[in-house]
């Protein structure tokens, strides 16, 4: 005779599960991954595979031998970290550097805090920033995309944001630089220079819509992030259109879409209430624009998100949900 089970209510569980969420994100990343394979060819595949496999291996080894827990690599979170890390590097990055990046992302940014759910900073971004600081040359020479499957040495060139930063720095005006900048159509579809995952705004948006449809993320963070960037840059553009480029360019260029849709919305490192999410998105947006317009780096998304990650515990403390029966006097 089977024994009856006794437990506290509720006795039902919804259909949401950690695995479903994580694999949902992986699926949402597929379009952007396909675009990167298309434009950067075999090199992109090798970099992505290296990142994913080394993330999985490091997570397994650390859990098994250092933390002595049951390894949980099948939950998909390490795969996401791997893909996002690969998305944040140029396809010409040496493979050994990619492995180091994966070790930093998983070992330092995730596991040293206790594993999934306990890391204050987005692991992929920590890995990326570590690589950027350690190997600045390799991390900032982007091969220009060519839609063929070849291993022939690609020509490297700056990203649109890099062109802009350099040009403005030299004292050129926007209209002088216009010829060197890609068309908005190319920036939307993906035919521009840049890191693996950030080139195609369209593919990223598709993934984002999929995640919203699956209720993995809500629209609060991406919308407030993108809107803030748009409004801030629009104001600057109005003030001096020859010095500050128009807001649409800012939305499509660089890692903004990737950051706003996939990195800033990382559940573990983002606030938990809607109001908190809006503030967090706003903060990310302001910091990104500040770095892009006046900082020394052409791109500021990863720094902006990492800085806001650090503020998340405070936001969670300060922005409580509206309690039922609170307002009525």
């Amino acid at each position: 005779m089977n024994l009856l089970t006794v437990s506290g209510s509720p006795h039902l569980h919804g259909d949401q599960s950690l695995k479903k969420i994580m694999w949902g994100v992986v699926i949402a990343l597929v379009p952007a991954m396909m675009v990167s394979f298309w434009y950067f060819g075999l090199a992109a595949i090798i970099i992505t595979l290296t990142a994913v496999v080394s993330c999985l291996i490091f997570e397994y080894l650390i859990q098994k031998f250092l933390l002595k827990q049951a390894p949980t690599i099948t939950d998909g979170s390490a795969i996401i970290t791997g893909i996002l890390l690969a998305f944040n590097v140029p396809s010409s990055l040496p493979v050994w550097q990619m492995v180091i990046g994966a070790l930093v992302a998983i070992g330092i940014a995730k596991m040293s805090y206790g594993g999934l759910g306990k890391n204050p900073f987005n692991p992929a971004l920590v890995g990326r920033v570590f690589l950027l600081i350690s190997f600045p040359v390799d991390m900032t020479s982007w091969p220009l995309p060519k839609p063929i499957w070849s291993m022939v040495d690609a020509i490297t060139g700056p990203t649109p944001l890099g062109v802009l930063k350099e040009g403005i720095g030299k004292g050129d005006t926007i209209s002088q630089l216009a010829a060197q900048l890609p068309s908005y159509q190319d920036m939307f579809i993906g035919g521009i220079g840049g890191s693996l995952g950030e080139i195609s705004a369209a593919a990223l948006l598709l993934g984002g819509l999929f995640m919203m449809y699956k209720k993995i993320i809500t629209c609060h963070i991406p919308v407030s992030y993108l809107l803030t960037v748009f409004v801030f840059t629009a104001i600057m553009w109005q003030i001096n259109p020859e010095h500050y480029i128009n807001p649409l360019f800012h939305l499509l260029a660089g890692g903004l879409m990737l950051g706003a849709i996939f990195m800033a919305t990382d559940m573990v490192t983002s606030p938990m209430t809607y109001r908190g999410m809006l503030l967090y998105g706003f903060g990310c947006g302001v910091l990104t624009v500040l770095i892009r317009l006046w900082g020394s780096y052409p791109e500021g998304v990863s720094f902006a998100i990492l800085i806001m990650n650090a503020v998340v515990p405070l936001i969670n403390k300060g922005f409580k949900p509206k309690r039922f029966g609170e307002v009525i006097k």
Partner: peptide, 20 residues
């Protein structure tokens, strides 16, 4: 499993509490 701080418990709480 580990809490991933997704905030879904806050979203569904009818009393506006933070169950996590």
């Amino acid at each position: 499993l580990n809490c991933i701080r997704c905030g879904k418990c806050i979203t569904v709480c009818p009393m506006g509490l933070e169950p996590y």
